[in-house]
Design a protein around this nucleic acid. Structure first.
Lengths: 313, 313
DNA sequence: CGCATGCATGCCGTCGCGTTATGATTCGAC
DNA sequence: GTCGAATCATAACGCGACGGCATGCATGCG
């Protein structure tokens, strides 16, 4: 009963009334309080009347030609500070986030972006919005998308290639926002002595008999896709996610490989190794994945903006 | 600029949104939050949309078929507790006052009420509403009214007599609320040996040649009023506010006096003294004076109620 | 005894904020 | 794979809160 009474009262309490009473205590008069709030005098008068009408609690009483707070009025005015303080604290934090003086971006990106896109993003974001913090985890596209879905990340940088069964555009990112930020070319990695290295543009079919060094499962899928289109099935000698290791193997003559530009850009060329574009100008496309509506978070939007500027092509 | 931004945001913050976000954090879903607030689901949905629309701050984002809080949403939810707590504290105190489990009455009353009406009021109020505290100052009617006017008292008990120039009904209590709570008879105080003491009802004119003992200025005014009407001008031998002293003087044969019932009720009769009603059935009336609208304060209203029950006649 | 001050009241237009009904996704289950 | 349940978004609508303006009334002052 007492509880219900308090709850009903708390529901009937509105910020306007609290503010008005606070100002009345400060200024002593209803008219001055109205002016300080930017309202007309009748507005404040009616506000108090409505409050009394629906709660049965009088906050002011006439005193000569002015007014003064009742006991209840004084109590509410005393609490007005606490409410206003709590509210302004919240407003302050929100304003910082909106103004990008604070905020957080949890980023997930595929490994070959770690040494190229990601550092540039973090640096660019830090210079534009020093208050924004970035956390980063390396994750292959499927895991990165899963991280966004599970609210373990705010933004995922992913890639896909034409014909990809796990293309982020389609099924696996359902319910998420995906935007493309360009594409990166695929490069063949050959020993410099390899016959195909003689030409500037290499047709895949020229490498039908070579041994291949494959990367992550999806990269390997891409390779199979392209070679199938070129009319052969590649003989896969080794598999590794480590791009530097791939180059070493190629230099040792253990095989050839197909790597994306970003992966190659992460480190200087290994001696004895050259890269060539494919004759098909094959690319893989880059995407940003967020929760639906995720770009409405200012820090995320800022990161997206930087990335769109950074994107290849 | 940052300040203005925060202030604008604080103005845009409304309790509904804060409550809604708090509930969403508790319940995890918009529908559950709506139910726990007793609202329909679209109401909550629109509340959030309106907030985002006018502030540009998104609080929730879609996640699968449900939603989850954004960074800003989490921040607001975290502050929701502080706001709700401050508000409930205020509501709690107000509820206590409204329910008369707390409250205060600052009482001012004329001296002869101190020994009669006031103790009964305090006792009655204490038994009905133990949480209400009463403070009391003795003050003659003009001072008591001034105390109410200056917000040094919430309630004044005053008296007036017909023809009183300072009658609280009229000029001196302008702008205050006055309500009559009855009247008390005036009693002549005579030595038991006085010839007039032989009859049950005494005509004032029978005392035209006696010496009189006068009380406070207004009591003296009343006496002059009545004797003038009776056709004589009283010879005033002594003046004192002390009612017990008056009786002693009367007993010593120093004169006669006219005292109100309340003053006489405060103490047992002095030996050798008798009281008699006047033939004119003269009375003085009792009043309660509050600030305009003062009875809307629950504790004051309770005191008034007790006093109206206690009033003579 | 006017005049300025301060609050209350009446009237009115707008819009915030609920409602119900309905649509669009998404997830799980058979 | 498809159907059904769950969840949120949107549309259409009504009411009342909440402003403003004009005006009246009481009070205090010169």
């Amino acid at each position: 009963m007492s509880d219900a009474s308090i709850e009903a009262l708390a529901d009937a309490l509105d910020l306007q009334t609290v503010r008005v009473v606070g100002r009345i205590r400060e200024h002593g008069s209803l008219t001055a309080a109205a002016a300080s709030l930017g309202f007309s005098q009748p507005a404040v008068s009616q506000q108090l009347r409505r409050f009394e009408q629906r709660t049965g609690i009088a906050l002011v009483e006439r005193a000569g030609r002015g007014i003064r707070l009742t006991e209840s009025g004084h109590i509410l005015a005393r609490h007005a500070n606490a409410v206003a303080t709590a509210l302004e604290a919240a407003a302050g934090e929100l304003a910082e986030i909106r103004g990008l003086r604070a905020g957080r971006v949890r980023l997930a990106a595929f490994p070959s972006a770690s040494a190229t896109l990601v550092p540039k993003l973090i640096a660019g974001l830090a210079s534009r919005h020093p208050g924004v913090t970035v956390t980063y985890v390396e994750a292959e596209p499927p895991e990165a998308v899963a991280a966004v879905r599970a609210d373990r990340a705010d933004l995922a940088i992913t890639f896909s290639y034409p014909g990809d069964r796990d293309d982020p555009h389609t099924e696996s990112a359902k319910g998420l926002d995906v935007r493309s930020i360009g594409a990166e070319g695929m490069r063949l990695v050959l020993p410099e002595a390899h016959p195909a290295a003689a030409s500037d543009l290499v047709d895949l079919s020229a490498l039908a008999d070579d041994a291949w060094i494959a990367g992550c499962p999806r990269c390997r899928g891409h390779l199979l896709e392209l070679t199938t289109r070129a009319g052969f099935r590649p003989r896969i000698g080794f598999e590794t996610d480590n791009f530097v290791a791939v180059e070493s193997m190629v230099a040792q003559g253990l095989g050839v490989a197909l790597l994306p530009e970003l992966a190659l850009a992460a480190s200087p060329r290994h001696p004895g190794v050259v890269t060539r574009p494919t004759s098909g100008a094959d690319v893989r496309s880059l995407h940003l994945v967020t929760a639906r509506g995720g770009v409405r978070v200012p820090a995320v939007a800022a990161a997206v903006a930087v990335l769109e500027q950074l994107a290849p092509r």
